[in-house]
């Protein structure tokens, strides 16, 4: 009944011939498949591999892989990474874990960045997602507990099942998350802090609010829409390809457009409002971001 990330891990190691070498290998890990445990313990073939091994007999979390594959195939690009890999990145579990927006954003950024560097087939994306959450919790100082992460994920895969028992298998799962976290760290070269658009967006919203008529502001839920758009943008890799300020402006732009809210006296202004917020921003960039953003939502409707 339980999915086995540990199993997944081992399985991945088996098929991993095409996995690219880690760029961070300079730290001392050879191109070994078990580089992460070794990195951790400095003893080859440590106990970790031993504990992971039993999972091998388990059929690799077939459901997880299946749904994930389905996810990708719908997108028509199963073999290569696209920004829209799936909805099942850290967002949803993040919400269920009670994470704030910023840690979730960081988790998503870590996740997407990881799969920018590493072929999608190399590792179980779910395991990476869990590890990203765990790591993001540390980075953004909203500490999560692996037990919660495992519970939420298990619940996600098996919606009506009871929580896992805290047996040795559970601890194996936990170990695999922790080890994967180290892998992620290495792949990202320990650069796991990100400049998120959230802060910018909120300041922009405030500035716009002061310039708009207060009734039209009250009538139009611009701020909440913008916030939702920004959060949703993390389902894709938007955050990796555009500047935080640009994303914030684009999100605000889309939110204003959605309700037909105009910035007063824009025609008369010397500078359009969006350029005020970011000097190097151009209209095409906004349009790019907006179309990417809208593209993310196409997955929402395609995947039931």
């Amino acid at each position: 009944m339980a999915i086995s990330w540990a199993g997944a891990w081992v399985q991945r190691e088996d098929v991993e011939t095409r996995r690219p070498q880690l760029e961070g290998g300079g730290i001392g890990a050879p191109a070994s498949r078990l580089s992460v445990p070794r990195l951790l313990t400095h003893t080859p073939a440590s106990q970790h591999t031993g504990t992971l091994a039993p999972g091998h007999t388990e059929p690799f979390g077939a459901y997880a892989l299946g749904s994930f594959a389905k996810c990708i195939r719908k997108d028509g690009s199963a073999s290569s990474y696209t920004p829209y890999i799936c909805l099942e990145d850290p967002c949803e579990p993040g919400v269920k874990l009670g994470m704030r927006s910023i840690p979730i954003a960081t988790a998503c950024a870590i996740y997407h960045k990881f799969f920018c560097e590493i072929d999608l087939d190399a590792y179980d994306p779910y395991l990476v997602a869990m590890s990203s959450l765990y790591l993001a919790g540390k980075v953004e100082e909203q500490r999560l507990r692996t037990r919660d992460i495992i519970n939420v994920s298990n619940r996600y895969f098996h919606p009506d099942s009871e929580p896992l028992e805290l047996d040795s298998r559970f601890w194996e799962l936990r170990d695999s998350i922790v080890q994967c976290e180290l892998l992620v760290l290495r792949v990202l070269r320990f650069q796991v802090s990100f400049q998120h658009p959230h802060k910018y967006l909120l300041h922009y919203l405030l500035s716009v609010k002061n310039w708009l008529n207060r009734y039209s502001w009250q009538r139009s839920p611009v701020s909440i829409t913008a916030w939702a758009l920004l959060r949703d943008s993390y389902h894709g890799g938007l955050c990796l390809r555009f500047q935080a300020q640009h994303i914030a402006v684009a999100v605000l732009h889309l939110a204003l457009q959605a309700y037909g809210v105009e910035v007063p006296a824009e025609a008369e202004a010397e500078k359009p409002w969006w350029q005020v917020f970011s000097e190097d921003l151009t209209k095409p960039i906004i349009d790019n971001i907006v179309s990417d953003l809208i593209q993310i939502y196409t997955m929402d409707t395609e995947i039931p």
Partner: peptide
């Protein structure tokens, strides 16, 4: 700052908004 401004703008983080139907 994020929490403060969210409060100021009336966005509820405990019940995060999303335009994703699945979310």
């Amino acid at each position: 700052v994020v929490e403060f401004l969210l409060g100021k703008l009336g966005i509820d983080e405990s019940n995060p908004p999303s335009l994703m139907r699945g979310l």
